[in-house]
């Protein structure tokens, strides 16, 4: 059975995002550290896509007509695993193996894991391959679309802009790029490491239909998707301003939150701050 995009139900999307955040904390607690901030920060986008937009078949992740979700930023795997488990592509129980030796849920997502379209992690690859996928799907006359998730820091890679040129040059209206601006990369905020702003104007200048929204608001994401789909002949950039660690103030406020090290006693605090039910 193919899962078609359900009528967007904001309440359900918010509930899923909350559940995915609980999965993220669960996985991170097992390994004691990790990309918790990214997993929490991107949960709203992933919930919106997997439960409001993507056409896919959980029983057949390789369905040729599926929409592709392409994770450039392999270290966001913790967020993606939460989403694909929640979507039924991998068993929920498997989340217990996150980051363990021999597990297919590696800390940077490998394409051998169901629901992972390609091996990201070496940043600047995802959009180049997404361009190729979008060209191939168009050549096949398929209506399937490609949704690529990049990060702000990834926009420092030259290949991102090579691909941005190609997407616009070839008029790939079936290509959507989400750029997660969480304002944190390995060595600090991009403004200190290598300035990017005004980032949305760069995408605009490269010929993309561009919007900039609050990436932690599923309603804004749905509205941006609707607006993007109404534009033809151009690829679509949706720049997301997100809060790392969203939903867990303990992590939201941590200064160095690219790769969070968590003291054992902090997990209970984090869980209680997130809460049992969606806010």
């Amino acid at each position: 059975m193919k899962t078609l995009p359900p009528a967007a139900d904001l309440r359900q999307i918010r509930q899923r995002a909350h559940t995915m955040r609980r999965h993220v904390l669960h996985m991170a607690e097992i390994v004691g550290q990790g990309y918790v901030g990214q997993g929490l920060g991107i949960a709203d986008l992933l919930a919106t896509l997997y439960f409001g937009e993507l056409r896919h078949d959980p029983k057949n992740p390789a369905w040729p007509d599926r929409d592709r979700f392409v994770l450039s930023i392999g270290h966001y795997a913790i967020g993606l695993y939460a989403a694909v488990a929640e979507a039924g592509i991998i068993p929920l129980a498997e989340l217990d193996t996150y980051g363990a030796d021999g597990s297919r849920l590696e800390m940077s997502a490998p394409e051998t894991t169901p629901g992972v379209e390609l091996t990201g992690g070496s940043l600047g690859h995802g959009l180049t391959q997404s361009v190729g996928m979008a060209l191939g799907l168009r050549l096949d006359g398929k209506s399937a679309r490609v949704f690529n998730l990049l990060s702000d820091g990834e926009c420092q890679e030259g290949s991102t802009w090579e691909a941005a040129m190609a997407g616009a040059h070839h008029g790939l209206e079936n290509l959507f790029a989400f750029i997660d601006c969480n304002n944190q990369q390995a060595d600090g905020p991009p403004s200190k490491v290598m300035g990017l702003e005004p980032l949305h104007k760069k995408w605009e200048a490269f010929g993309w239909h561009t919007q900039r929204i609050n990436g932690n608001d599923p309603a804004a994401i749905l509205a941006a998707l609707a607006a993007a789909k109404a534009v033809t002949g151009r690829p679509h950039a949706i720049v997301l301003d997100t809060l790392m660690g969203r939903g867990v103030p303990l992590f939201e406020q941590r200064e160095k939150n690219h790769f969070i090290r968590v003291a054992p006693e902090e997990w209970a605090v984090a869980r209680s701050q997130l809460g049992e039910a969606a806010p």
């Binding site: 391959q129 361009v131 190729g132 191939g136 050549l139 691909a163």
Partner: peptide, 11 residues
């Protein structure tokens, strides 16, 4: 990269 993406759609 684009060639790899095309290959992933069966080309």
């Amino acid at each position: 990269g684009c060639a790899c993406g095309l290959a992933r759609t069966g080309y």
